[in-house]
Design a protein around this nucleic acid. Structure first.
Length: 488
RNA sequence: GUCCCCAUCGUCUAGCCCGGCCCAGGACACCGGCCUUUCACGCCGGCGACGGGGGUUCGAAUCCCCCUGGGGACGCCA
């Protein structure tokens, strides 16, 4: 049997990292088994549906590199892939269940059900639908209809049955039909079918072989199995992924900080690092190799190796991974990715020579963990009118020879003829030190401050050789001015 | 409340199915050292866990039971 899996998100307007991981695992499973990865949009709840929200899903998946084989935009044999476009199909199966006498109309209003639930909870009973409307006569139904009530359709849950399934991750799971909360709704009063019903029809019709989804769906599974059986569909294999928790160990939600794919993308996490990190949330490769490309993930991924315990979403390791990826990324591509962040920081990137810019990225890349940090570290190459840091000013003014170092260095630079190479720079600094009897911190730190206004950063010889003599002079003038102002 | 799921370092986890090789291995983080006339990188080292209690067994992180703890689900949301 061929492997066909689907990722079926509801268009809520943002892609939660939990959903992103579910998509990833489905994708890895499909690719590893030479199967098909399908995208289906679950938009039966009209209020939530919007075009923009569907785009958010596309963007997130594309960014992560999860290309789908069948979906709303690319089509496929089993379309349409949007539930809102499959309403006629669902109707047919509603009729089938009606014909089999497995469903009935229920006229209870949401308010009535709500108070019923509250009463049950108060009495310490599990909330469940009692089956109140199960045996209404035609006259009673007419009367209720005349009151203006619109019925929902409920599926008759068998009284006494143990529903079991073998979960690929959790193992054997058994749930008694009495635990299902009574006969459940499959069609709303407005005529729209409900998730638990349509998901079964879609998965069956789309020939889904493995349903891989979050653990929070375990409780839905028995209801769905009942529907598969009622409709005579083969039941797929289930695999329920462990939950992703926040650092306080509760279900990851917005209050835990960044939880949407877009936020990570915007901060400047590389898609490869993000995907790699997500893959290790609940899954671990047999060989223990942690930095893995998409190809390597596909090669190693096995649903059986998925951990059944929940994982805490802690981005500390993601930061490390992102640094690893940044350090190893092809420099031209990394430069492309960095440019938007420079522009956002107000730099006119068009005025820089591309080759020069790539060199700057090359020497600063190890300093940033996310792309959004890039402008901070690249500033010392891009901006000549920088502010000298307060601490740096204090450092220089603490000892008068430190200021002299900067001035002496400046004077030597001024008379320099020929190219400013790393070697020449070192030689000049050495001469300065000799003349003023300064060494170590007292020598290099003032030069650094004169050059960048800061007390840390990249190797100075590399910095000056990329800056060139003219800019070096301009910068020292800038620093000196600020230092003299401060000393007066 | 009821049902379901889960339980190894702070975090991600290996080991658990098929008990001994585990006084529990790796990675991140943290701490220390080295390198570097700065910071970071890099290298080396350190700290650090089988939730508790009963069994079974010559022997349990591994098997069984109970407890505790955590999470999830109980919708005309998905």
């Amino acid at each position: 049997m061929s492997v066909r899996v689907r990722f079926a998100p509801s268009p809520t307007g943002f892609m939660h990292v939990g959903n992103a991981r579910t998509a990833l695992f489905n994708f890895l499973f499909a690719r590893h088994n030479n199967g098909t990865f399908i995208l289906r949009i679950e938009d039966t709840d009209i209020e939530r549906h919007s075009e923009e929200a569907v785009n958010v899903i596309y963007e997130a998946l594309k960014w992560m590199g999860l290309n789908w084989d069948e979906g709303p935009d690319v089509g496929g044999e089993y379309g349409p892939y949007r539930q809102s476009e499959r309403l006629d199909i669902y109707k047919k199966y509603v009729e089938e269940l009606k014909g089999k006498g497995l469903v009935y109309e229920c006229f209870c209003t949401p308010e009535e059900l709500d108070t019923m639930r509250k009463e049950q909870l108060e009495r310490g009973e599990p909330p469940r639908y009692t089956g109140k409307c199960r045996d209404l006569t035609e006259e009673e139904k007419e009367r209720l209809r005349a009151e203006g009530r619109k019925p929902v359709l409920r599926f008759k849950v068998p009284e006494d049955r143990i529903i079991s399934f073998n979960d690929l991750i959790k193992g054997e799971i058994e749930i008694h039909s009495r635990q299902l909360g009574g006969d459940f709704v499959i069609v709303r009063s407005n005529g729209m079918p409900v998730y638990n019903f349509v998901v079964v029809i879609d998965d069956a019709l789309m020939k889904i072989s493995h349903v891989i989804r979050g653990e929070d769906h375990i409780s839905n599974t028995p209801k769905q199995i009942l529907l598969y059986e009622a409709l005579g569909f083969p039941v797929p294999q289930f695999a329920h992924l462990p939950m992703i928790l926040g650092t306080d160990r509760s279900k990851l939600s917005k209050r835990h900080g960044s939880t949407s794919v877009k936020e990570f993308r915007d901060k400047g996490y590389l898609s490869e690092a993000f995907t790699n990190f997500l893959a290790l949330l609940g899954w671990y490769p047999k060989d223990g190799k942690e930095i893995l490309s998409m190809e390597e993930l596909i090669e190693r991924f096995d649903i059986k190796d998925v951990n059944s315990a929940p994982a805490v979403f802690d981005t500390t390791k993601l930061n490390w991974m992102n640094q690893v990826y940044i350090r190893n990324y092809p420099i031209d591509k990394l430069t492309d990715l960095v440019i938007p962040y420079l522009e956002k920081a107000g730099y006119d990137v068009s005025k820089y020579d591309r080759e020069w810019l790539e060199k700057v990225v090359e020497v600063t890349r190890e300093y940033f963990t996310v792309l959004a940090d890039a402008p901070i570290y690249m500033e010392m190459f891009l901006k000549d009118e920088f502010e000298v840091e307060e601490g740096a000013k204090e450092f220089v003014l603490e000892d008068e020879t430190r200021l002299k170092v900067i001035e002496n260095f400046y004077n030597r630079m001024k008379i320099l003829e020929g190219e400013l190479t790393p070697g020449i720079f070192k030689q000049i600094v050495k001469e300065v030190g000799k003349e003023l009897k300064a060494k170590g911190k007292n020598l290099f730190m003032p030069v650094r401050i004169g050059l960048t206004g800061r007390m840390k950063g990249v190797e100075l010889d590399i910095l000056v050789s990329l800056l060139g003599k003219e800019r070096v002079l301009r910068r020292i003038e800038n620093s000196l001015k600020q230092l003299n102002e401060k000393s007066n």
